[in-house]
Design a protein around this nucleic acid. Structure first.
Ligand SMILES: [Mn+2]
Ligand SMILES: [Mn+2]
Ligand SMILES: [Zn+2]
Ligand SMILES: [Zn+2]
Lengths: 146, 146
DNA sequence: TCTATCATTAGAATTGTTCTAAACTGCTTG
DNA sequence: CAAGCAGTTTAGAACAATTCTAATGATAGA
C-alpha cells in the first residue's frame, strides 16, 4: 500500500506551514489535534474564544477532538505564549489570540470582548507594586452598558 | 413567657445600628442572617471576600446560615450597591466592600487583591466606547508576580 | 524500526454557583 | 396584637465549567 488518501479539508498550504511552525517554535509537538485547533484559533484575525466555543467550532469543522484536548491545547498554547487567558465574567474564561500589549472593552449585556490598542489608553502614572514586586502586566477593562 | 433571653454575641450598639440602617436604607429587610453577614463583611475595613470565605467566617462566629443565604445576601448587597463583585481569577468571584472608584493589585501567586486609590492611577486618555455606548466603569488591574 | 516520552480520550470527579420548593419571618393593616 | 402576604431562608438537588484518571495512541529521536 503506497497510496495515502488525504481527505482532510483543504486549507492554504501557507497557513498550514505557519501553524505547524508556530507550534514547533513554541516547543509543542504538532499533533493532528493541536494543528487543527490552532488553525481554527488563528485562521481569522484576533479573537476571544472560550473552550466551549472552540470545541463547537471543531465539531462543526468535523475535527474530532475531545473536550479535554481542547482544554489541554488552550492551556498549553497559553503556557507557551501563543494565547493569553482572560477571566472577566467568572462564568468562563476566554482565550485571546492577541498576545501583544492591549486592553479591552467588555460589553456587559452580551459578554463580548473587543480589543483596544495599547496606544489608545494613556496611563500617565501607576503606583509601584508593594514591596517592589515585579508587575507582570496591567489590564484595563472598560465595561460598557451594551 | 415574657422573658426573651438574648444570647447573641455582643457587638457595639453603634455597629449594630449602622448595619441595620445600611440595610434599611438600601431597601433590604434587616433579617437576622443579613445583619450577621453584613456585620462580618463591614466590621473591619475594606475587604475582598469570596462566598466560601464569608460562609466559613459565619461558621466560626456561630452564625448559622446556609450557603445559599450567603450567596443570596452577597448578590442582594451587590444589587443594592453595598458591595461590588469582582472576577479576576475565573475560579471564584470576590465581593469588594469598597464600592467607591478604585483599582486593584492582583497578586498572582496568592490570588490576593489589594486596593489602589483611584488617584494613584492617572489615566490621561481613554477611547470612546463603540457606538457611543455608555461606560459603566473602568477597571485597572495591576497583576503582580508575588 | 524501536521505544521512551508526550498527547489524547471517555468518562468520572470536583468545584463554585444556582435552583427548587417548602418552611419561616418581618412588616403592614385592621 | 392578630392575620396574612410578600420577601427570606434553607437543604439538598441540579448545573456548568473545568480538571482528573488511567488507559490507549502518536511523535520523534536513536
Ligand atoms: Mn484555566
Ligand atoms: Mn455571582
Ligand atoms: Zn484581546
Ligand atoms: Zn477593592
Amino acid at each position: 500500500m503506497y497510496v495515502t488518501i488525504m481527505r482532510q479539508k483543504k486549507t492554504s498550504p501557507a497557513n498550514n506551514v505557519t501553524v505547524l511552525e508556530r507550534l514547533r517554535t513554541a516547543g509543542l509537538r504538532p499533533t493532528r489535534q493541536r494543528l487543527a485547533l490552532a488553525k481554527l484559533m488563528f485562521a481569522r484575525g484576533h479573537r476571544h474564544v472560550s473552550a466551549e466555543q472552540l470545541f463547537n467550532e471543531a465539531k462543526s469543522s468535523r475535527v474530532d477532538v475531545s473536550l479535554a484536548t481542547v482544554y489541554n491545547a488552550l492551556h498549553d498554547f497559553t503556557a507557551k505564549g501563543l494565547l493569553r487567558e482572560i477571566s472577566i465574567d467568572s462564568s468562563s474564561s476566554y482565550f485571546d489570540t492577541n498576545t501583544g500589549s492591549h486592553h479591552h472593552f467588555y460589553f456587559e449585556r452580551s459578554g463580548h470582548l473587543e480589543d483596544i490598542a495599547a496606544e489608545r489608553v494613556n496611563i500617565a502614572s501607576l503606583p509601584e507594586a508593594p514591596g517592589g514586586a515585579e508587575i507582570s502586566r496591567v489590564d484595563v477593562i472598560i465595561r460598557v452598558k451594551a
